[in-house]
Design a protein around this nucleic acid. Structure first.
Length: 498
RNA sequence: GGCCCAUUCGUCUAGAGGCCCAGGACGCUGCCCUCUCAAGGCAGAAACACGAGUUCGAGUCUCGUAUGGGCCA
């Protein structure tokens, strides 16, 4: 076993950073940090047809946002670069041919038509599908002939026909594959580009990767890779196949989805950047991801990555696939929000308000933030909870102004008296407001609830809003009175008096 | 269809043979607090897929079945 822990996260730049990939990256990172090892970022960009140029930026910003820093890879130094597979194709070609020289791989000249015909023949005969190994058994004269015709070929791995390969996996112990179930897969394509298998094995070897932590879905390729290491005489890394993340329905893996969708009313986020723009904190998302497939211990659910590092071990990762408990993320994000300093929170909230088109007033924001801190679950929630502070004109159904068990006329009278009292109140702060309004309710023989409700709608335009007295005081006397005046005219419209 | 993986409350999980008539968390329900909504407090409902075996004893080990999933076709 290699003495130094070196792990890698090796995404293909085919789209934005997926939450499932992020979880794999997180486990790699935790493992590296736990053992004082290196976390390497490698970009597997040999598939030109699916290449998305913006993907790299998205990976970089997504990983950084989550707090996962890499020791080697794009934008950092490293002795094992380059870290883009597209810049290493000579290496793959070299080792692909070396495998042929060593007798562990062979050139295959079969055309697409030949392959299709062979497959159909196998199906008809009820045999196992897969390449029929035609070129594996070519005679040397046949090979020489094809070589001299310089016909296009691929390089296939020569899988042993008998025996079995056992993969040692940190998360699931041993997994054994019979060789007669394996295929002679393509390593090097006819255009000279490597397949995933070749590039992966070559890179992991030369980058001195000690542990391969990847998703469950790669288990079937593990025996091929192990066989390749053996053929090349290279030391094998240790495998750890992390459980898959499933769709919320439990049907199918989440990775198949590329962007957010709605499932039974629940918004299902897929891309890391979607979590970000939905108003989740990176600490909460990272914490949340840790709790799927792994447990901190001591019945603790809330913790930082720094706290997780010393306790993390791949051996403790739960092998069964899981869905993301999104409702738990909401709760967790709320926990982080409640723990923050209000000033910090208001800074985080601001862009979300602006995004919603609100004209944010800085000191109003600072005054209002404590009122909503324990009520919002995401930063985006702030738009609904404090948007009215910044609205120039409130829009609401005037009948909402009618108090519970009251009519328009009595509501109008109550609001009018409240307005007079608020206008004359000596100090417009929470304590005074509460005292004044409660006294007023008593004087008018009203229960406080209905009265406060009328004022709440008048001032916020909503039936549900932050605590009334704090809201009024944060809003200030002028705004409060102006909004009440508007409400009074609404009520007058509802109760025409002669 | 072949190979492979997995299976504890609705969900995420703890549990490495007796500490488990199974613990925590989210969610849900009820009560308390209360100006609405939250937050908080208290209480509650809720699970070892099934069947054999090993063992004095199995959620925990073995095998089979079922179900779900992955890869390939």
């Amino acid at each position: 076993m290699k003495e130094k822990v070196r792990v890698r996260f090796a995404p293909s730049p085919t789209g934005p950073l997926h939450i499932g990939s992020a979880r794999t990256a997180l486990f790699n990172w935790l493992f590296a940090r736990r053992h004082g090892g290196a976390f390497i970022l490698r970009i597997e960009d040999t598939d030109r047809s699916r290449f998305v140029p913006e993907a790299l930026d998205d990976f970089v910003s997504g990983l950084r946002w989550l707090g996962l820093d890499w020791d080697e890879g794009p934008m950092t130094n490293g002795k094992h670069g380059p870290y883009f597979q597209s810049q290493r194709t000579d290496l793959y070609r070299e080792w692909g041919h070396r495998l042929v020289e060593l007798g562990h791989a062979y050139k295959c000249w079969c055309s697409a038509e030949q392959l299709r015909a062979a497959r159909q023949e196998q199906q008809r005969a009820g045999q196992r599908a897969g390449y029929d190994r035609h070129c594996r058994f070519l005679t040397s004269t046949q090979i020489a002939e094809l070589e001299s015709a310089s016909a296009p070929y691929v390089i296939r791995f020569k899988t042993p026909l008998q025996g079995a390969t056992t993969i040692h996996d940190l998360i699931r112990d041993h997994i054994t594959f019979e060789h007669d179930q394996l295929e002679d897969l393509v390593l090097l394509k006819s255009d000279g580009f490597p397949t995933y298998h070749l590039a992966n094995v070559v890179d992991d070897h030369f980058m001195e990767i000690s542990h391969i932590v990847r998703a469950d879905e790669w288990i079937p390729t593990a025996p091929l890779h192990a066989l390749m290491y053996e053929a090349l005489g290279w030391e094998k890394p240790i495998y750890a196949h992390a459980p898959l993340i499933l769709n919320p329905s439990g049907k199918g893996k989440l990775s198949k989805r590329s962007q957010a969708f709605t499932d039974g009313g629940q918004e299902v986020l897929i891309q890391v950047r979607e979590f970000r723009s939905a108003g989740y904190f990176p600490q909460a998302v990272a914490n949340f991801l840790c709790n799927v497939g792994w447990a901190f211990g001591d019945d603790r659910e809330v913790f930082s990555l720094a706290e997780a590092i010393p306790r993390f071990d791949l051996k403790d990762v739960n092998p069964s696939p899981a869905r993301l408990p999104y409702s738990k993320l909401e709760w967790l994000n709320g926990v982080y929000i409640r723990r923050m300093k209000p000033e910090t929170l208001s800074v985080a909230i601001r862009p979300f308000l602006e995004e919603a088109g609100l004209a944010v007033v800085a000191d109003m924001l600072v005054r209002a933030t404590p009122l909503i801190q324990e009520r919002i679950k995401t930063l985006k929630d702030a738009v609904d909870w404090m948007g009215f502070f910044f609205a120039t004109e409130l829009r609401y159904e005037p009948t909402l102004l009618i108090g519970k068990k009251m009519d328009a006329a009595s509501s109008l009278a109550a609001l009018q008296q409240a307005r007079d009292m608020l206008a004359s109140l000596c100090k417009f702060d929470s304590v005074n407001l509460e005292e004044g309004l409660r006294q007023l309710a008593g004087k008018m023989n009203l229960k406080p609830g209905p009265l406060f409700g009328i004022i709440r709608v008048a001032v916020t335009g909503q039936k549900v809003a932050p605590p009334l007295f704090g809201t009024l005081s944060a809003l200030g006397r002028n705004q409060t009175l102006a909004r009440i005046d508007r409400a009074l005219s609404h009520l007058e419209g509802l109760s025409p008096r002669d």
